[in-house]
Amino acid sequence: MGNLADRIEEYLKRILEQTPDGYIILQRSELAGEFDCVPSQINYVLDTRFTVERGYLVESRRGGGGYLRIVRLGLGMEGQYQQIMRQLIGEQLTQVRCNGLVDRLLDEQLVTVREAALIKGILSGGALSGEFSDWNVLRAQLMKSILTTLSRDDLL
């Protein structure tokens, strides 16, 4: 099996899939105990694998009665999708955030593996090289255009 972070991610996603509520509430220390790791390892997984761009909201309260609540963000009704994605993209979009958004589109089965690879390739730092100074702004505009095109084609 993969490394510890992969196992923790898979475990949390499996629990989320099984709950009808769309969210789970856990104790960080209990989760760390189950995986025989330090709580900071749990934090690392949450910070890197359960981001808004990837479709999750994590609420955390530390201390004796502290908890973690992980919410799977759905894309909801038609029209909400573009609004949510545009808010996540903003005026600038880094390569890391771009890849996270494309991974979410893939997870939601809104694009194929091939389409995801094309989008990532087009919006990669290598493809956007040259003397232009603000590639993050251009990347955000291009991603918004891609999403608009996808929704017009009734693919979303």
Rank of each mutant, 00 (worst) to 15 (best):
1 M>I: 01
5 A>C: 02
8 I>C: 04
10 E>G: 08
10 E>T: 00
11 Y>P: 09
12 L>K: 05
12 L>V: 09
14 R>Y: 06
17 E>M: 09
18 Q>V: 01
21 D>A: 15
22 G>I: 14
27 Q>A: 02
28 R>W: 03
28 R>K: 15
33 G>N: 08
35 F>I: 02
39 P>E: 08
42 I>H: 05
46 L>I: 07
48 T>F: 00
52 V>H: 09
56 Y>P: 08
60 S>Q: 14
60 S>T: 10
62 R>F: 11
63 G>T: 14
63 G>W: 15
64 G>N: 11
65 G>S: 13
66 G>Q: 15
69 R>K: 15
70 I>F: 09
71 V>L: 13
76 G>A: 12
78 E>W: 00
81 Y>C: 04
82 Q>F: 05
83 Q>H: 13
83 Q>Y: 12
84 I>G: 01
89 I>M: 10
90 G>T: 03
93 L>H: 07
94 T>G: 11
95 Q>M: 06
95 Q>W: 13
96 V>A: 04
97 R>Q: 12
101 L>N: 09
101 L>A: 08
106 L>M: 10
107 D>E: 04
110 L>G: 14
111 V>Q: 05
113 V>Q: 15
114 R>K: 06
117 A>N: 12
123 L>N: 04
124 S>W: 14
125 G>N: 15
127 A>H: 14
128 L>S: 07
130 G>S: 12
133 S>N: 02
134 D>P: 06
134 D>I: 05
135 W>K: 09
136 N>M: 09
136 N>F: 05
143 M>G: 08
144 K>G: 02
147 L>H: 06
147 L>N: 10
148 T>W: 12
149 T>S: 09
151 S>F: 01
153 D>Y: 01
155 L>I: 06
